[in-house]
């Protein structure tokens, strides 16, 4: 999923100061799962903002709505009936959702309420960590299902650097050494020979090196 974290209240207040009526829009997808911008967080933030701004003498009316999926024009259209009644929109979705609202409602200011972080997985309750950088040419089949691009601090593709200690990365004991994980997996799978092969320099074009990326599925595109 795409993970996100709420921005500090002070930053959000700065955004909203000039406005009287604001629509706070959540998303029912990734940001709901990582507890950053779903229906529940929309409710909490709306009252938090309202209270904090009242204290400083600003009365902002905050309307709430949570879309099924904010990165999808079909769902964003739901906001048509609400948009005229507000001066600005604050989105609790990832950057994709914020941009979809900006694209759909050209004369309405839209502000992000969260910082979009990374593509990750849940390690345990309340903990998410990075798993994928969308390099566009997945090599997990060669690396025992552990990604060195997303999980090695130096993106090394041919084994651990000299800073790997006791299964930890040199940048900190709270970070696993991706190559220690890869090696354990390869051993468990009896695929040690995969390590010996040199992975050549990566072509970064599918990973964004060729500019903003797009997928066009001829069989589905209208």
């Amino acid at each position: 999923m795409i993970t996100a974290e709420r921005k500090p209240l002070e930053e959000l207040i700065e955004y909203l100061k000039p406005f009287k009526r604001v629509l706070l829009v959540g998303c029912n997808e990734c940001v709901t799962v990582c507890a950053a911008g779903g229906r529940k967080e929309v409710g909490l933030l709306a009252s938090g903002l309202h209270m904090a701004m009242l204290k400083s003498g600003t009365n902002v009316e905050i309307r709430e709505h949570t879309l099924e999926r904010q990165c999808d024009p079909e769902y964003v259209n739901e906001l048509v009936s609400m948009i005229d009644g507000v001066d600005a929109v604050m989105s609790m979705a990832c950057g994709c959702g914020v941009q979809e609202i900006a694209r759909r409602f050209k004369d309405k200011p839209v502000f992000p309420a969260v910082n979009t972080k990374f593509m990750g997985a849940s390690e345990r309750q309340g903990v998410w960590s990075e798993r994928c950088q969308g390099c566009g040419d997945c090599l997990l089949g060669q690396t025992g299902g552990v990604c060195p691009i997303a999980r090695c601090a130096k993106q090394l593709m041919n084994g651990p650097c000299g800073g790997s200690t006791g299964g930890h990365c040199e940048i900190g004991d709270d970070v696993d050494c991706a190559w220690a994980l890869i090696w354990e997996r390869l051993k468990a799978l009896g695929q040690e020979e995969r390590f010996v092969e040199i992975t050549p320099a990566k072509d970064w074009r599918p990973g964004g090196g060729a500019g903003p990326r797009k997928i066009i599925r001829e069989d589905l595109a209208e």
Binding site: S164, W179, W183, I198
Partner: peptide
């Protein structure tokens, strides 16, 4: 090139040198 015989995993240290 450099090699660190003292980093972990130890068994990868010679394999990485070979690479």
């Amino acid at each position: 090139a450099a090699a660190n015989p003292f980093a972990d995993p130890f068994e990868l240290r010679v394999l990485r040198l070979a690479k």
